[in-house]
């Protein structure tokens, strides 16, 4: 299972960044694939990006909500939210564990042999804060005299934009290098701090910041694909907690197995020696005894 997941992460990272003609043609891909929102966090200003970033696209639509309303158009992000909701309703937060290039980067960084720190649980509210304030409210409410807002999350927070777009584009273009000022310096420091955090804590961006994960996480309990914990089989070995990249402690009832923090990597399913975790796909089961279409681990 873990090998399959690794392959999936590599394949989707390559698919999301498959435009390698940028040194010779246009600095970023401008083809029709950019009409599609990539299910993971991947900046669409990255020179190699083939699809659009859902968080960037949502902010852009909300930042231009007032002018679009004045022109008689209702562009509130239905296309982006519909795309994310459709994916989320099927697999919940599975794209975070199986598709997201920034998740893959965090996984690599955490493998570095440095002392590790545990994650402070109140930070779990962070993704919702960033989603509501930086992705939704600020782009709508803080506008210029013409009614145009800004993409606050991209501008002041997103490390993926700095890493995947800022650094490569500034390296390639002297004009952009000359235009870079305090904002780039600030974003670069944010990126460095986050990368350091990734080396000492497992998936800190997913757990404390990512607004895309916050959206997908809302579907974890009601998606077609869900995990099921069988407490009667559990031997309390804690193998699931040890291996969980987001530190979900469901074996002792502290967390729900399908909590919004679960990135559906399915490592708990693979490692459990007592088959106490299973995967199910279908309507929500009211009674465990009536479970149908259940795939045992």
């Amino acid at each position: 299972m873990e090998r399959l997941r690794r392959k999936s992460q590599y394949i989707f990272t390559l698919l999301a960044n498959a435009y390698w003609l940028f040194p010779w043609r246009s600095p970023i891909y401008q083809g029709p694939l950019k009409k599609i929102c990539f299910p993971g966090l991947n900046c669409h200003s990255c020179p190699a990006a083939t699809m659009s970033c859902p968080i960037g696209a949502l902010q852009n639509l909300l930042a231009t909500l007032r002018p679009s309303l004045q022109m008689g158009q209702i562009h509130f992000g239905a296309y982006v939210l519909g795309s994310l909701g459709l994916i989320g309703s099927i697999g919940g937060r599975m794209p975070c564990g199986w598709i997201c290039p920034f998740g893959l980067l965090q996984k690599w960084l955490f493998l570095l042999p440095v002392p590790k720190l545990s994650f402070w649980r109140p930070f779990r509210m962070g993704p919702y804060l960033f989603l509501v304030v930086f992705v939704v409210l600020l782009p709508i409410l803080v506008v210029d005299p013409l009614g145009y807002g800004s993409t606050w999350f991209c501008k002041y927070v997103c490390p993926a934009g700095t890493l995947e777009a800022g650094i490569p584009l500034l390296s390639l273009d002297q004009g952009l290098r000359c235009a870079a000022g305090w904002l780039f310096a600030y974003k670069f420091i944010v990126l460095i701090l986050l990368l350091i955090w990734c080396t000492v804590t497992s998936r800190p961006f997913c757990r404390a910041i990512c607004p895309l994960g916050a959206i997908y996480g809302l579907f974890n309990r009601i998606s077609w694909l869900r995990l099921r914990f069988h407490p009667d089989r559990c031997v309390q070995c804690k193998a699931c907690l040890t291996i969980c990249p987001t530190g979900i402690s469901f074996y002792n009832g502290l967390d729900d197995l399908n909590s919004a923090a679960c990135i559906r990597c399915l490592r708990c399913l693979s490692i459990c020696p007592a088959n106490a975790v299973s995967l199910e796909f279908g309507p929500v089961q009211e009674d465990i005894g009536k479970a149908v279409n259940t795939i045992e681990s």
Partner: peptide, 18 residues
């Protein structure tokens, strides 16, 4: 909304790159 998303995604986002 699709053309709006596309148009934004094919131009370099100066905010994203800082």
């Amino acid at each position: 909304e699709v053309p709006v998303v596309w148009h934004k995604a094919i131009t370099i986002c100066l905010s994203c790159i800082g």
